[in-house]
Design a protein around this nucleic acid. Sequence first.
DNA 1: CTGCGATCTGGAGCGCGCTCCAGGTCAAGC
DNA 2: GCTTGACCTGGAGCGCGCTCCAGATCGCAG
Lengths: 129, 129
Amino acid sequence: MTTYTPAEAARLSGFSIDTLRYYEREGILSPVARTAGGRRRYSEEDIGRLGFLRCLRDTGMPIAQLRRYGELSLDGSTVPERVALLEEHEAVVAAAIEELHAQRARLREKLAWYRAEMAADERPAVPSR
Amino acid sequence: MTTYTPAEAARLSGFSIDTLRYYEREGILSPVARTAGGRRRYSEEDIGRLGFLRCLRDTGMPIAQLRRYGELSLDGSTVPERVALLEEHEAVVAAAIEELHAQRARLREKLAWYRAEMAADERPAVPSR
DNA sequence: CTGCGATCTGGAGCGCGCTCCAGGTCAAGC
DNA sequence: GCTTGACCTGGAGCGCGCTCCAGATCGCAG
């Protein structure tokens, strides 16, 4: 079965090696398998989990909730709780998208106004024909 | 002309009083008028500026850029620079929206998968007719 | 005039999410 | 066997964006 070194896991997940260790310490990612000498070997599943964690982080889920999700994932009977957590998060993401849309519209209005300003300044007093 | 106390400015803008002072110190908001005794009196224009600053912050513009924008706003001849700054930021916001959409789709896939899991668990082995 | 709540200043402190460091260990290549 | 570089641990440090504090002052209501 394929495994990955910390460096590979970092490259594949987009997290830094330090962050991977930090997540493991924090219980966000369950303990990773080790070689006889104590080096980490990330499994395919670990990589998959990391990919999903990246999705959650990219959508702004705070570390505390990531940890909660990590803890729930240790117990197979917690699927409903996990679903609830993710549904709640999905709503937060939806709201964030809405908010960004609205503020972007405002930003564009301001830009339109500035452009009008610039056009007016360029052509003062008497229009050049 | 209408003016506003710090408490009113805070309520209207959604920033805390401390944040208002902080923004002024940082040069993000140009110096606010004072009473004879030294208390701030925010003008309508100040409130307007704060509203736009809120838009910028809500779309994730970092403090350093807010400061740059504040500095540019002191000089009337910098409209093109301000437009450039805002255009750049608009692109960042657009990218953020895209990213959120993509990650949200991923989140939904995961949820769909979990729901399928739950449905399967609920109805084991022999279907109840 | 008095009381008292709002505001003032300069500066320290905080919460989040990493990031870096020292000092040591492991393991692949020569 | 030795070198070299990736990796280990525990813990300190950092950058951002505020937030809080002490101690003083202002100014309106009564």
